[in-house]
Write a protein that binds this DNA or RNA. Structure first.
Length: 587
RNA sequence: GCCCCCGUAGCUCAAUGGAUAGAGCGCCUGACUUCGAAUCAGUAGGUUGGGGGUUCGAGUCCCUCCGGGGGCGCCA
């Protein structure tokens, strides 16, 4: 927001350095000054120059020399245009802003742009974010939830940052787990219809299948026969598969609706299986893949092809020895299809960290095939969600916290809190609030942890409604909204001529930073950046709320603070929206 | 054997190579006749796992050790 002023100041500094015969850096980096209650930007550029001199043998104490140079530069440039004060502190050159002028500019910018405040310029880049990737005929559990929430927030952020964003889902609708399910259903539940929560019902049959097969291993022959029938596309089996798959899809859709997620395209494993097998034949013909069938699988010795001594990419199996497909068989053609059919420039895979090597292999094989866009494939990895005692969630082993159970508990707890905190709210409002708070808390808990940190699932922490959690941020939004509602209308304009409180300056400084926070979150693939930012913003607003009367403010301060409140409400709502969290009007 | 990730306050987590390492939870003390107390103010809590190195400057980068988790030819 102050790029223009800082750029001019940078130019002046470089000119001053040149005039004094000092080395000039390529550019001057500015960061917000860390002092509470003062608003400005500082640069540490002179440390680098002083260090450079010291290296050339001049010796001396670097911090002292940095301060000396900074002081000389300050003498030369004076206070740059647009700033109220400049000073040298501990070797830093700090430029302070005239609070009133800039406060007005920040607030006016936000209110003029509304929900577009913070949106990046269109980047002329199309990115696809593939996330969620659930298996049909199986449970949807808390481990899957981290993926959806992370992927959804990441897509929101990339889109807001200026990318043309395509949200993709990739459904695991075939494979041994589906065959086992179909076997169990045909044998023990013929003709049954799903009851209650469809996803849970699907999971129950799946665990039953696993249990029966473990108890009676001789049944595996029947499963193998069914797999063969599937491979032969037995019409009756295919029909059953389609119908049962649909039940899973309907169940998933309920979950996505609840979470507020939508996809622009859904890929199915089943539709890339045949293209994958053809691609593997091509790889064999081109000498990239080695065909060891029938005694072994079709594989690609990547390190060998690259002439690497040290094991790096290892070997990737791309087709089973019996000719049936693997995950890799299908991922290769799909990767290409994303670029060719969807014309994307970058392809992001939101998949947990355990598949890091696998994805490195896939991307490298694409490169070996001569597919140049392979370098535009990105693995956005994240750590898994474990149960206490470091137990990994597994639908096969039934060690899962089901999404359905979690969401029920979340709604129940949030409902009790709403009843406690705001009993006079009409019932339908209570439900809306409870829902926003429950989902918000859940999402925030997932997003407020760095991607590469393991989350140990804990009911109380996943559903935390206090402290650094979504409801705190939502509450700040509600209170801002409450002030604005009482005020009736927001003044068209206001000057910030009253002496600004420290809390007002802090709030303004954070508000001004929103656009760059969005860019950084997008560039680093870190929704956490936004999660932290919006929490800090909520704290700053709460602090402002404590210290500065708005409606009872004297004179011109009232209008200014009212507009500041409106700007804060807007930015809180925008930040939450990027995280996929609702900002309620009341709670 | 090769590779990746984690280790920061009692607990859970933050922190562009930058200024005094910050929050929340929990503990204790206090604040509703106030623009909404899902809040706030205050107290206490640190050799950033250990040791080297690079740098003007390291929680952050490099090396090494310790502890924990994960991955590695026919699971997805």
């Amino acid at each position: 927001m102050f790029d223009r002023e800082l750029a001019k100041a940078s130019q002046a500094i470089i000119r001053a350095l040149t005039e004094q015969g000092l080395p000039t850096p390529q550019r001057i980096d500015w960061s917000p000054t860390p002092f509470h209650g003062q608003w400005g930007f500082g640069t540490a550029a002179f440390f680098q120059i002083a260090a450079q001199e010291a290296r050339r043998g001049k010796g001396g104490c670097v911090p002292e020399r940095a301060a000396e140079i900074a002081q000389a530069v300050l003498q030369a440039i004076g206070t740059p245009e647009g700033f109220s004060r400049a000073s040298v502190e501990r070797g830093y050159l700090n430029l302070y802003l005239e609070p009133g002028l800039y406060a007005k500019r920040v607030v006016n910018t936000i209110l003029a742009q509304g929900e577009d405040f913070g949106r990046g310029h269109p980047k002329d880049e199309r990115v696809m974010v593939e996330y969620s990737q659930p298996n049909t005929h199986k449970a949807f559990h808390v481990g899957h939830l981290r993926n959806v929430i992370l992927g959804g927030a990441m897509a929101n952020i990339l889109e807001f940052a200026g990318c043309d964003t395509v949200r993709a889902n990739y459904i695991g609708d075939i494979g041994l787990h589906v065959i086992k399910w179909l076997w169990c259903y045909r044998k023990y539940h013929p003709g049954e219809q799903p009851q209650g929560d469809k996803t849970r019902w699907m999971q129950e049959i799946y665990t039953e299948a696993e249990r029966r097969l473990e108890e009676n291993p001789e049944n595996e022959q029947e499963v193998r026969a069914l797999f063969a029938a599937w491979e032969a596309r037995d019409p009756e089996l295919v029909q059953l598969w389609e119908r049962t798959r649909q039940w899973s899809m309907e169940g998933f859709q309920e979950i996505y609706d609840l979470l507020g997620e939508h996809f622009d395209v859904i890929f199915y494993e089943s539709e890339v299986e045949e293209p994958g097998k053809r691609l593997v034949e091509d790889l064999i013909a081109r000498g990239i893949a080695i065909d060891e069938r029938p005694d072994g699988p079709v594989l690609i010795k990547i390190d060998e092809l690259l002439g690497l001594e040290k094991e790096t990419y290892r070997t990737l199996v791309v087709l089973r020895s019996d000719g049936t497909s693997l995950y890799s068989t299908k991922d290769l053609p799909l990767a290409i299809r994303k670029f060719e059919e969807w014309k994307v420039d970058r392809s992001i895979y939101v998949i947990d960290v355990r598949q890091s090597l696998y994805l490195k292999q896939i991307f490298k094989v694409l490169e070996l095939m001569g597919f140049e866009q392979a370098r535009n494939c990105v693995h956005l990895s994240y750590e898994i969600v474990n149960l206490p005692g470091n137990v990994t969630m597994s639908s096969r082993e039934g060690t899962v916290v089901l999404f359905d159970d979690l969401i029920r508990e979340a709604f129940a707890r949030a409902g009790r809190i709403v009843e406690l905190k705001n009993p006079s709210l009409p019932d339908d409002q209570k439900q809306i609030v409870a829902r926003a708070v429950a989902l918000g808390a859940l999402k925030y808990a997932m997003l407020a942890v760095d991607n590469n940190k393991v989350v140990t699932f804990d009911w109380d922490r996943a559903l935390d409604f206090e402290g650094q959690a979504a409801p705190y941020i939502q509450y700040a939004h509600v209170r801002a909204n409450s002030i604005l509602r009482r005020a009736g209308s927001i003044p068209q304009d206001a000057t910030f001529e009253h002496p600004l409180e420290a809390s007002e300056i802090q709030l303004l400084e954070l508000l001004a930073r929103f656009p760059q926070e969005v860019q950084r979150a997008a560039a680093e693939y870190k929704p956490l950046q936004i999660a932290n930012y919006v929490y800090n913003l909520a704290r700053a607003f709460t602090d402002f709320y404590q210290h500065c009367p708005v409606l009872q403010a004297e004179g011109a301060a009232g209008a200014a603070r009212l507009r500041l409140t409106a700007a804060a409400r807007q930015t809180l709502a925008s930040g939450l929206r990027l995280l996929g969290i609702e900002a309620p009007e009341v709670m």
